[in-house]
Design a protein around this nucleic acid. Structure first.
Length: 469
RNA sequence: GUGGGAGUAGCUCAGCUGGUAGAGCGUCGGUCUGUGGCACCGAAUGUCGCGGGUUCAAUCCCCGUCUCCCACCCCA
């Protein structure tokens, strides 16, 4: 925003949150905390440990993991030169005669993370986690950054809760009995999905639907066969497709499958389906996954048009939609990504993971009326007089120590006013401390809901509250 | 990044074809100097998103810009 020339006296400029970012405030933050607390609890019951990777990494990590050609990497990342790297170049005298363009291209670039799977894989490698008991099960939660046009359920700083299961490939085991390996992988996939559904169920998220698919693997006898077939069929119906889809025939034919354009639907429905072209291994894996989900009582729907946008996915892909989200109705997406760790310089490793859009999850909970109401205080202390203040301070300390939420007004107020304030704050009880109470040693406790009140000695009061709150 | 809609008090909004702003809710105070929710009375708060233009005069018309919302692209 350009500030006009300094004319007359100017008020200090008002700041506002940067586009696509926002403040999360009470009482909404209580819901965020509940969601995150539930995630901690549920994920830990499945044996997952929390990882907290940094919020920025070398740009190259994301470029390699997510795919340099993807929209996320090519135009949606917050990328900047690492100032430390520039400084080092200067110190080492390497900048002699360099044009500024060269200088920038030589300097290390870093990016705010657009997702966290790449970081988790990097950490797996960096900390030699292949030496831990396998598989390694990690979860994370925190902000991600993508420079997209904001809309409902999509922000430039948004929050994800995700989990990854990584397992280093034991060559002997794989060669000994590949079918067993496939069954094991499918069971892990299913358990990850089961964990998700357990989490959503615990939150009472309304109208969730789980969609699954298999997109095969990149070998010559699997997805590439399908891609050739799909490409031929797409050429035949090219004239019927919209401009976007026509362009994608060359750039990313798979993406045409999840086009939302009404006029294309009848043609897309007739296109070949990847599940008919899976190789033996991928087909066995997909069949085993469905069996595993059924054994776990997880309801799913197959969606052959579900393809994931990130380069690293193979075999299992899945997505969960929920109510009340407008066009951004996916609350969670995930899939298998064997080979990604190796691509990042680690040992051959299998992986499966998901990311939940926490903003969307919260939105859906709010839309379905699951949001908690304003958090009130347990006890409001209405006090009058100097002696009473000392008592009030002591009472507040003891009540808080016992775990109650206490509001202690900083100045004395008439009791009428104090009770009014207590009411507005949603307090359950008012502890009334005036001259009478202090001299008698009997404190008055008023139940705001029905107006009843009674006198208690200091220890009795604590007992009473513990019993009734 | 593309297209459409909208920005007026803390919130939700009104403001007739241009004459520099109002309601409800909320907040605060009073009726009510040891007892809240109700009621009544009263008060504060707006550079009418920001900048420029047209005009004697702009919240209203025009242009630009920022932000939000909706959809596309893409994704969580």
């Amino acid at each position: 925003m350009s500030e006009g020339a300094a004319k007359k006296e100017e008020k200090p400029r008002k700041f506002q949150a940067i586009r696509g970012t926002r403040d999360l405030l009470p009482p909404e933050t209580a819901l965020w905390n509940r969601v995150e607390q539930t995630a901690h609890e549920v994920f830990e019951t499945f044996g997952f440990g929390q990882i907290r990777p940094p919020i920025f990494e070398q740009t190259e990590l994301f470029a390699r993991a997510v795919g340099g050609e993807t929209d996320i990497v090519s135009k949606e990342m917050y990328t900047f030169t690492n100032p430390t790297s520039l400084a080092a170049m200067v110190r080492e005298g390497r900048t002699e005669g360099m044009l500024s363009d060269t200088l920038l291209s030589e300097a290390e670039m870093i990016s705010l993370r657009p997702e966290a799977t790449a970081s988790v894989c990097r950490a797996f490698i960096e900390h030699n986690m292949q030496q831990l008991p396998q598989p390694v099960k990690l979860y994370y939660m925190g902000p991600m950054f993508r420079r997209e046009r904001p809309q409902k359920g999509r922000y430039r700083q948004f929050y994800q809760i995700g989990a990854e299961v990584l397992e280093v490939v034991r060559r002997e085991a794989a060669e000994h009995d590949w079918e067993k390996e496939v069954r094991k992988d499918a069971a892990i996939d299913a358990e990850v999905i089961e964990m998700l559904m357990t989490f959503f169920a615990k939150l009472e998220l309304a109208g969730t639907t789980l969609y699954i698919n298999s997109i095969g693997h990149s070998g010559p006898d699997c997805r590439s066969v399908y891609m050739g077939k799909l490409y031929n069929e797409l050429l035949k119906i090219k004239g019927k497709l919209g401009a976007d889809s026509q362009r994608r025939i060359a750039t990313n034919p798979l993406r045409i499958l999840d086009s939302k354009l009404e006029s294309e639907q009848s043609y897309i429905e007739k296109l070949p389906r990847i599940t008919d072209y899976l190789c033996t291994g991928c087909a066995a894996h997909y069949a085993a996954l469905k069996r595993q989900l059924e054994m776990r009582g997880v309801i799913y729907r197959e969606n052959w048009r579900l393809v994931r946008g990130l380069d690293y996915y193979m075999r299992t892909t899945f997505e969960i939609t929920a109510q009340g989200l407008g066009s951004q109705n996916a609350v969670c997406g995930g899939g298998r990504y064997d080979g990604l760790v190796e691509l990042l310089g680690g040992p051959p490793t299998k992986g499966i993971g998901f990311a939940i859009g926490e903003d969307r999850l919260i939105l859906s909970l709010q839309e379905s009326g699951k949001a908690p109401v304003q958090q009130g205080r347990d006890v409001y202390i209405a006090w009058m007089g100097e002696r009473a203040q000392a008592t009030a301070i002591r009472a507040a300390k003891d009540l808080r120590k016992a775990g109650f939420s206490v509001e202690l007004p900083p100045v004395e107020q008439k009791f009428g006013k104090a009770l009014g304030h207590a009411d507005k704050l949603g307090a359950k009880y008012a502890l009334i401390l005036g001259d009478n109470e202090v001299s008698e040693g009997l404190w008055t406790l008023k139940t705001l809901a029905n107006g009843s009140q009674a006198k208690f000695t200091e220890p009795d009061l604590l007992e009473h509250l513990k019993k009734h709150l």
